[in-house]
Design a protein around this nucleic acid. Structure first.
Lengths: 359, 359
DNA sequence: CTAGTTATAGAAAACGTTTTCTGAGCTGCG
DNA sequence: CGCAGCTCAGAAAACGTTTTCTATAACTAG
């Protein structure tokens, strides 16, 4: 079949050991002339190492496993892409398995991946509180990328939702809004709480009194955004702007506003959260806070690879900040729109929890 | 570390060979009592085979490689999910690598995957005409899942775009429309041609004369749909319905219609193609032909696994049909909407090219 | 000049399986 | 009864690497 070390050994006259040492790139001393010869012959013969053999012997595979809830769910692909780009840069490949939000399937996935030759595991949108014993016992390096947990957990990368909410509200305030409605997500989600807190804190920072009337519950779905906005519109002193905890509810709110024969952004401004794909094709195009999904994937992977390389052990929770993407639902200054489409592959800011400036 | 065959052999008193035969599930004769004992002990000890060792010895890894252009591009995740579901059912895992529409990176990906332990490769949205020599020489089973090529190629799975266009147009005709505009995709794309042909053929089948005035060019983007619709609206005898070759252009058309102070669907009906995520959250919700992405993934994988199992060699091009998803942009009978959200994991029809009924 | 060290290369063990080869004990048939 | 043929189990080879151990030559220090 394929050309192997033995063939190259025969062709060059050196031993298998020597050939291996050259080709595997260890720091074992090999004289330059030998190295050169082996390299050129290997090149000529088109040598490709047998990864199975290598990993059997050395226990390292340059492969990491990714456990996702569902590759089709909207936030997952960009996270995975961030992971894969970082992996590729370091010569790694990824094995992806779906858990379908099912703890049993997830356990199974963990078991499967651990038995496989993977050097580490990344959990994307891991939602189960119970850490797996198997995972613990395997001592494989692992990272969590998610938006779920409340309390900081080790080895995890999360979005800085508090900061993001702050951006949205600050933008509205800068446009002159004082009465800003808020449509919250489910109360038991950490996301909702963090964004809600960001909303409150930013109001306070600008000395705008917090009015509980302006806060409406939602469940992430469009329909709940619609109803929430209806309630806000029915207030005696109704808001001039609405910040929704996600894009879907923001869109529902826009529809409610339109159905009330009001205009967005002329009569009421709207800001969403997430920067979902549809945000730039709905009408009016949605101003929103980008969830830094791609970056989260990258950051998690960098940390994982460092762990694999033995550079460090567990890390604290890492928070990643997203940017405000200004489009049409706030009627903001055109100049601000210049930056419109952010490129997920470019610069981003990573903020370690304990290094955050003020708050 | 992990428990291995030797440990189980020691624990049960049988030889490694016997244990392996039981656990690997070969058809080698092993007496029931031995089998049972080994199985229970292995279970108790939590045995998981070392895949690296297994694949080194047996040259089979129960892993397939997937080369995608970009996991973030909209059609890819459901295709990948279809592949992965089918793989999982058969005890396989998948290694995914992105090629970024770059032939060089794709070559690289192929090389990488071939040197790895993968039993086969699936190309998703493979766009390069030049088949790789490396791929050919490797003799690895492979399949292509794509929407690109014109001429049928071996081992590929494609959507039946002609049929889909037929569905869309038939629906409009059944609602009484006679003047149906068509917004085409780029002419050099096979998709565009197939959908255009479906449009023409279905008109003919209903004895509706083809009017070239009603056909407008587009480039898949929303903006081109907008302009195309403007042109259609400017016709002296303007259409009562518009069929756009994709959802994005359909959405652009809707916006153009609305900007002309006409209503969708009351004044003009619109049908899109693809059933993208946004189709069910825009306003009005878009009636469209579903691209059978999930099914394409499954079908390709079934065929690949059959190849790997040695059940058959190369296959002819396989066409998969999508369904019409009826929502709000045609004002269709409410009864028809019952089937609204199709479940991608359920039944679907696969149609081999040479088994197609009439056309 | 000798002993110790260093630089380099080869031999061989090891990784955990699968699979081939061997062989022991039966069964069945002439 | 004897032998072919079957059923089942074990011994050992093999898969292609990496890595440990050993060996040799060259060099250095004293």
């Amino acid at each position: 079949m394929s050309v192997k070390l033995e063939d190259i050994a025969k062709a060059t006259g050196f031993s298998i050991a020597t050939v291996s040492r050259v080709l595997a790139g260890t720091d074992y001393p090999v004289s330059p002339s030998v190295r050169e010869k082996v390299l050129s012959v290997a090149q000529a013969m088109g040598y490709k190492p047998n990864i199975a053999a290598r990993s059997l012997r050395s226990n390292r595979t340059n492969t990491v496993g990714i456990i996702v809830d569902d590759i089709m769910s909207p936030f997952v692909p960009p996270i995975v892409r961030g992971i894969q780009d970082c992996l590729r840069e370091n010569g790694f490949l990824s094995l992806i398995v779906n858990s379908d939000w099912d703890p049993d399937q997830e356990q199974d996935a963990i078991r499967t991946l651990i038995s496989r030759p993977v050097d580490g595991i990344i959990f994307v949108e891991y939602s189960h509180r119970v850490r797996s014993e198997i995972l613990e016992k395997s001592h494989k390096p692992h990272m969590f990328v998610h938006r779920i947990f409340g309390s900081p957990i080790k080895n995890s990368v999360v979005p800085d939702d508090h900061y993001g909410a702050t951006l949205a509200v600050r933008h509205l305030i800068s446009l002159g809004h004082q009465r800003i409605g808020y449509i919250n997500g489910p109360e038991n989600w950490h996301n909702s709480r963090a964004r809600y807190l960001g909303y409150q804190d930013e109001l306070e920072r600008h000395n705008i009194p917090f009015d509980p009337e302006l806060v409406q519950p939602g469940d992430w779905e469009m329909e709940s955004g619609y109803r929430a906005a209806q309630n806000l519109l029915a207030l005696r002193d109704r808001p001039t702007a609405i910040f929704a905890a996600n894009d879907l509810m923001a869109l529902g709110a826009i529809y409610a506003i339109q159905d009330a024969h009001l205009r967005v952004p002329e009569d009421i401004a709207v800001v969403g959260y997430d920067n979902r794909d549809f945000a730039k094709i709905v009408r009016p195009r949605l101003t929103t806070v980008a969830m830094p999904v791609y970056e989260m994937g990258r950051v998690a992977t960098e940390s994982l690879l460092a762990q694999i390389a033995g550079e460090h052990g567990e890390t604290e929770e890492i928070k990643v900040r997203g940017e405000l993407v200004i489009r049409d639902t706030c009627g903001a200054d055109e100049a601000l729109k210049a930056r419109e489409e952010i490129n997920p592959r470019t610069a981003f800011r990573r903020v370690l929890l304990n290094k955050q400036p003020e708050g």
